[in-house]
């Protein structure tokens, strides 16, 4: 069933495949990001309660959703790396982790800049904020564990295992606003009927798509670097770089 996927486990094929996708993905991501953000910040009406401060939503929500999306992608790669012992899958885990960490940091920082004027505090130890902070530490943990053992193979296994175990945090983040009494507002757009006006929803959806495509583009870019680093003694890399 997965026979068509097989060749992509070979690093050389994957390197060239990512190289083909990269320019297309990167350009699409940047165009969508500028479109969604400029539309959101200059051409949508202000919120009736929060005024213009709500415009932070156009980066806060995309970064937050994709910080979890990146984690799901990373954990899937970790699963493949652990179960089928495919090396490139582990390199993908390490390629995605820093991107996810930056997205998580963006979600936290923009949330603080939004929380100060609306809640009166930069930070509160609320369920949503705390679980999102734990997500950031999970990303740091995955990156740090990989290099923490003298035997690289053990490091690779342990960091993939942490990525997999950390999946438990995703539903906790998502449902934190329902399970606990929190300051953070509930879901607006992931409901069946979005609780947001279409004039504000469209630029937001474009920005979310932009962050998703940017995640793919950066994964391609970073995975290519990882393949070169790990396969530097292979003849095809020598020919590609040296020739």
């Amino acid at each position: 069933m997965f026979k068509w996927l097989d060749p992509y486990a070979k690093s050389e094929t994957l390197y060239h495949f990512c190289g083909k996708l990269l320019p297309f993905l990167m350009v699409t991501a940047l165009v969508l990001l500028l479109l969604g953000n400029i539309w959101g910040i200059a051409f949508t009406p202000a919120d009736y309660q929060q005024g213009d401060s709500y415009r932070i939503i156009h980066i806060h929500v995309p970064a937050a959703i994709l910080s979890m999306g990146a984690y799901a992608a990373m954990a899937s790669a970790a699963f493949v790396a652990l179960v089928w012992q495919i090396k490139v899958a582990h390199w993908a885990v390490l390629a995605i982790a820093p991107i996810g960490a930056v997205y998580t940091a963006i979600a936290l920082i923009t949330g603080m800049a939004w929380g100060k004027p609306m809640w009166g505090a930069w930070w509160v130890w609320d369920a949503r904020l705390t679980s999102q902070l734990i997500l950031l530490f999970l990303y740091f943990g995955v990156m740090a564990l990989d290099g923490a053992f003298s035997d690289r193979k053990v490091g690779a296994k342990v960091s993939s295992l942490l990525a997999l175990v950390g999946v438990i945090n995703l539903p906790i983040i998502h449902f934190s606003v329902e399970w606990w009494n929190t300051l953070h507002q509930g879901a607006s757009i992931t409901k069946f009927r979005p609780a947001i006006d279409p004039s504000m929803l469209w630029p937001l959806l474009i920005s979310i798509l932009a962050f998703a495509v940017l995640l793919m583009a950066l994964t391609c870019l970073r995975l290519r670097t990882a393949i070169l680093e790990n396969e530097q003694h292979r003849p095809w890399v020598r020919k590609l770089v040296g020739g």
């Binding site: 953000n37 910040i41 202000a46 005024g51 213009d52 401060s53 415009r55 932070i56 980066i59 806060h60 970064a63 820093p98 991107i99 930056v102 940091a105 963006i106 920082i109 923009t110 800049a113 939004w114 100060k116 004027p117 940017l214 950066l218 870019l221 970073r222 670097t225």
Partner: peptide, 25 residues
């Protein structure tokens, strides 16, 4: 609407981090 500092702080840090991430990679 009076929230300039917070809005531009959020957007500024976001774009700074994204540029560092893309450029660094």
């Amino acid at each position: 609407g009076g929230y300039g500092f917070f809005v531009w702080l959020a957007f500024g840090i976001t774009y700074l981090l994204l540029i560092v991430l893309i450029g660094g990679s």
